[in-house]
Amino acid sequence: MGRGEHWTAGQPFCGARAWNEVLERFLRRGWTMTKEACVIKGNRHGLMLSVSEEASFAEILGQLREKLSAHRDFFQGAVVRLHSSAAFLSEDRVDDLAAVVHEYGMTLDRTMTLEDQRPQKQQRQKVPEFNLDDTKLIRRTIRSGQSIHYSGNVVVMGDVNAGSEIVCSGDILILGSLRGVAHAGAEGNAKAVVFAFRLEPTQLRIAHYISRAPDEKGPKPTGPELAQVVDNLIQIRPYGRFVKR
């Protein structure tokens, strides 16, 4: 029961206020992307400025100033990439944003990324954005020192040996053994998957999630397996109904 024991009938939990505050702050941290008017966050590609479509533009500008002045030194000289839909931000508004950003010693990269990493509610039902049209088929073994970079899905008919890497924005299917490094959804698609007949990679990456092989040698996989992100972790499970484990 733990904390529940402090609750007595009709009497509010003594620490309820403080607790609520913590909870609220925690929740807000998880939802900054949608709740706040503008958010600056760093990822592998550098700084990103994302603006909420629910807030007014004045609100966005105000909050941007507030944030930049709070960490003036930190942002000095940085390049920040705009992360918003083109429909929401007109050319003039982008100019305004750029001016504010410039005031604080930064530059704005105007290439807009349309898709938000966290899909909006109404977009959730959409079919996956990757289709078979942008799939690269490789009919050979990928050996140590070789790397495949592709914008789309990658299918390898052969092995992917240790010391090699496959990086793509979509899914990775290996019809053979995967022993090297595979990075699916490299442009931020956390729904990307990695599939292999024998999944024993040096390292697996999906979007910004990374996992590596355990240091101790485990049992070798006996059948095809699929890796995907489940609850913020890369999870590997046998693939197909008839797999014996």
Partner: peptide, 9 residues
């Protein structure tokens, strides 16, 4: 591992 690299090259 090196042999693998060589085969690729």
């Amino acid at each position: 591992r090196d042999a693998d690299r060589i085969i690729g090259l």
